[in-house]
């Protein structure tokens, strides 16, 4: 199969796993809104109003990260419970088409909530066109990073039930604990390096910069605080997870 036919396969997998379920059960969208808006509401009630834009940005990035969590559980479910991934393995469809198809279907689920967060962000923060384009790019890179990680991890399970807590664990560590919903400056300066262990920190740093929110890391190192470092790390980690998904995941069982 050519690149064109693999792209076509990915889009059609997105259609059957993402578009059709959304079309026939629109309530599925609600689940995508629930957690990030709960966090935002919580922040709105307890945090100073000056932190509200960070909460909106956090919600936006959360939807991209949550796509990774859904990717992990959906792929594990389709492989272990429905035996459906096998139908694609034993076919001319390449792993990249399946991964992209599944990732795009997660994006379809995420898109309504992400759109609402983008709109709120544009209302509360004066983001210019360049900033908006940069934010869309950061959102898409975060989605790609999270979904490729989700797929790779999904292939490691031999029991479906194990995948649920692990998905919650991984994506809580990526979205709730690092400075995604709050400014990095809230972390004591001596401990800010810990935030660099979470890939989502780089997304949040870049997104906060693109929106002109400030509050980025002040570790004392010029390199670590530079936007180029965040870009390099986010792209590098996305490539790393993408490579793991393509070449190290168990497309064929060992």
């Amino acid at each position: 199969m050519t690149i064109r036919s693999q792209s076509n396969a990915a889009l059609r997998i997105c259609f059957i796993n993402g578009v059709l379920p959304l079309w026939r059960s629109p309530l599925l969208i609600a689940a995508q809104f629930l957690t990030p808006f709960s966090f935002l509401f919580f922040l709105f009630v307890i945090a100073p109003r000056s932190l509200f834009p960070f909460g909106v940005m956090g919600g936006l990035l959360f939807t991209a990260l949550f796509a990774g969590s859904s990717m992990l559980t959906d792929c594990a479910y389709l492989r272990l419970e429905r035996q459906f991934q096998q139908v694609f393995v034993a076919s001319p469809v390449r792993p990249i088409a399946y991964i992209m198809g599944m990732a795009l279907s997660e994006l379809a689920f995420t898109a309504p909530a992400a759109t609402v967060f983008f709109v709120i962000l544009l209302v509360v923060v004066p983001v210019g066109l360049v900033g908006l384009v940069a934010l869309i790019g950061i959102f898409l890179l975060t989605w790609l990073m999270a979904t490729t990680l989700g797929f790779f991890v999904s292939t490691l399970f031999i029991q479906l039930r194990e995948s649920w807590p692990i998905a919650t664990l991984i994506f809580s560590l990526l979205s709730v604990i690092p400075p995604v919903f709050y400014p990095a400056t809230e972390i004591p300066q001596n401990w800010q390096w810990v935030a660099l262990l979470a890939p989502s920190t780089f997304s949040a740093q870049l997104a906060d910069r693109a929106a002109g929110l400030g509050g980025t890391l002040t570790t004392g190192s010029l390199i670590l605080n530079a936007p180029a470092f965040d870009v390099a790390m986010l792209v590098g980690i996305t490539l790393l997870f993408g490579t793991a998904a393509l070449f190290l995941s168990r497309w064929r069982e060992p």
Binding site: L20, P21, S25, R82, Q83, F84, V89, A90, S91
Partner: peptide
């Protein structure tokens, strides 16, 4: 080999939201 094969897995199940025609 994969270009030449297709497989019905044991106890395979459909996607929930799809019709046989679409599938």
């Amino acid at each position: 080999v994969r270009a030449l094969i297709a497989m019905v897995p044991q106890e395979g199940k459909l996607f929930y939201h799809i019709t046989p025609r679409e599938l």
